[in-house]
Design a protein around this nucleic acid. Sequence first.
DNA 1: GGATTTATTTCCGCTGCGGAAGAAATGAGC
DNA 2: GCTCATTTCTTCCGCAGCGGAAATAAATCC
Lengths: 403, 403
Amino acid sequence: MAGDRRGVANAASVLRTVLDHGPVARSGISPLCGLSPAAVSRQTTGLLRAGLLRELPDPAGRAGSGRPRIPLDLHTGAVGGPVAAGLHIGVPASTFSLVDLRGQVLARRAFPHRDPRDPDLSGLIAAELGRFLREYVTGSRPLLGVGAALGGWVRPDAGTVVRHPALGWRQRPLATELSRALGLPVHVDNHARAVAGAEILFGHPAARRSLVHLFIGNVVDAAFGIEGTVHQGPGSAAGDVAHLPVPGSGAVCACGRTGCLQAAASDTALGAEAVRRGIVPDPSVPLLVDAAAAGDPRADRLLRERARDVGRAAALLLDVFNPAVMVVTELSGVLHEGYLDEIRAAAVERSHVCDDPERIIAPHAGPAVLPQAAATVLLDPLFRDPAGLTWECEITSGGYGLG
Amino acid sequence: MAGDRRGVANAASVLRTVLDHGPVARSGISPLCGLSPAAVSRQTTGLLRAGLLRELPDPAGRAGSGRPRIPLDLHTGAVGGPVAAGLHIGVPASTFSLVDLRGQVLARRAFPHRDPRDPDLSGLIAAELGRFLREYVTGSRPLLGVGAALGGWVRPDAGTVVRHPALGWRQRPLATELSRALGLPVHVDNHARAVAGAEILFGHPAARRSLVHLFIGNVVDAAFGIEGTVHQGPGSAAGDVAHLPVPGSGAVCACGRTGCLQAAASDTALGAEAVRRGIVPDPSVPLLVDAAAAGDPRADRLLRERARDVGRAAALLLDVFNPAVMVVTELSGVLHEGYLDEIRAAAVERSHVCDDPERIIAPHAGPAVLPQAAATVLLDPLFRDPAGLTWECEITSGGYGLG
DNA sequence: GGATTTATTTCCGCTGCGGAAGAAATGAGC
DNA sequence: GCTCATTTCTTCCGCAGCGGAAATAAATCC
């Protein structure tokens, strides 16, 4: 049973090669993934039949004589390829998305929560997500399943949310709930890890070697990836950087100490500080960003201060772990290159081993990080085992196609 | 070429299963590593022929009826099995060792360096190591090769020492040098990673899932392991924890800041502080430890202070990375359980996620860590590919047996 | 001593690999 | 326009190594 993983491994290898090297012919895949032409031929036939790859029409410019190569590419959503649904569960709103095999976000919709602590929140989400999917998914674009990403302590293997304070969830079998409601395979994961996974799959090539992802949102979170795999930690609880010391910051943390990253840089802390300084009336980071965009120098200064604190934390993680790339998801700030530069400058200034600011990058998908990352929670297992996308938690009620 | 790794993977799987589950019969291996009895039979025949496994004599107490199971075990050095040489290159002395497949250190010898910056230091070491090996290795105990561990920036893949300040080495092809001089396969690695590798292979079972290794010596160093593999980082430079902030420590670091782990807890810093406090005449940690053992309360206090600083750094790494286990190699302190408890107490007190002091452990091999770890630099590749132990860097002049 | 039981090996069919030969689809030369 | 060279892709074949089943081995039990 566990003895022969050749087929799976090689199919995955071929699929990744196509993902990484754009449209490429079988003859190009062969040297790239170290398989014989015969093996590539076999694997591509399977992947074509499964609808994950497609043959491109004859290319315009051809080189030299001989039989023309047939370029293969991932079967993307734009041309009727399969798509994955993404669900990011957040406060105050969740986001639905449709994402294709290249990580392109084809559609997205916000779903604000009237009451985030409603005990049937997941039911409401499932119903609305179902409507969203019926609206956007047509028969010609098969739906592979749903990837769900959210904060808190999540166990992807069990498909459960162990704890999510803001939603009041404990030991919630989210994957089972959603899957039963939607009749689709559902995978779940923590959102910091989901973004890390998306970055590994669709982002900077070096991210596949090693990356650290620093997630700055209502809470701060981190994820570590090595050799294309995101680290889980015992009980899938890794990456608690909330109390990473950020020397120089005087903010008092809930833990009682000063200088914790969480207290210095989380959206919650930032919003509160913005109110305290009288920049905005409500503790809202979007409002603060708007103010900065509108030219309020106090707002800009505060955002830059935050960026420098994030940079200091990044420097620490860079020194300790020395990843090939460091991805910083700072949902309000990513949109503004200036703040990324501020993070980079602070990090390089502070780091002892990293003198290349380019090692710190914003998520590849830009503002679409979360919609992409959520769907990646489903796509990642697909790219690891192209044949075996089933839902490990419970009933696998067919479910390819929906509507 | 890259298509069929079944044999290698399954042989490695069987070998690891035997390593983990002591003497175990083929019928026991089968369920443990998920291979069919037939496959286990095949693999064990190969491993027996290669001399890596051996059949144990009929066990005394037998259970029930039926054909008795034949226990298999690693062919350890004590019964004529193969051994690996370990070489830890340190200042002021290097250490030679012979280690068997279970990580048991069979012999060791210190080799003090008259002048650590002698440009031919590696030549002297090779010559003396050769004498050591000729003395201890007999024909009945085949020598697999040499694993070398040392501080500084080491590239295991290239077999080179990129930089080692204390020895004045830069871009030194150490593996090639040693291999040419000894006629044996030689692998090299950084000592923090080597210890991590040894702990994964021979130490706490959970270490195979994920571990952080914190190495406190003349410098401080760290290594990260996930799923049985030690993280290398770009250019194999990971784990720079020298400037990890240890709040509360007032020591001034070479980098100009205060509160760096290096300045607070390295042996160098500790020795200097001991002299400053008039506890010992020379900046030597062994002297300080002796003083503490002899009952000097000032020495004991200083060591406890250091232990608490180490504990704070450990807490930070535990929170951030949340490894299954955290190994602390503190060469002088590991010998004294009291200091480990001090580290644990400080770490748990400071950590936000870890409330189990038992997750912090001393190296499994105790004072023999470094001799064991050095040899593991060779043994690790062996356990990954039991058939393919050759030396990737250059000439592979046979070399099994020596003398 | 034969039946029973359990461990290990052998046999056999299958999958999937690599290498080589074959088929396909083009450009080049005349 | 036909042939030939060229390059790509597929098919065929032998081989390694798996799992499952049957055979063999080595004990205990009665």
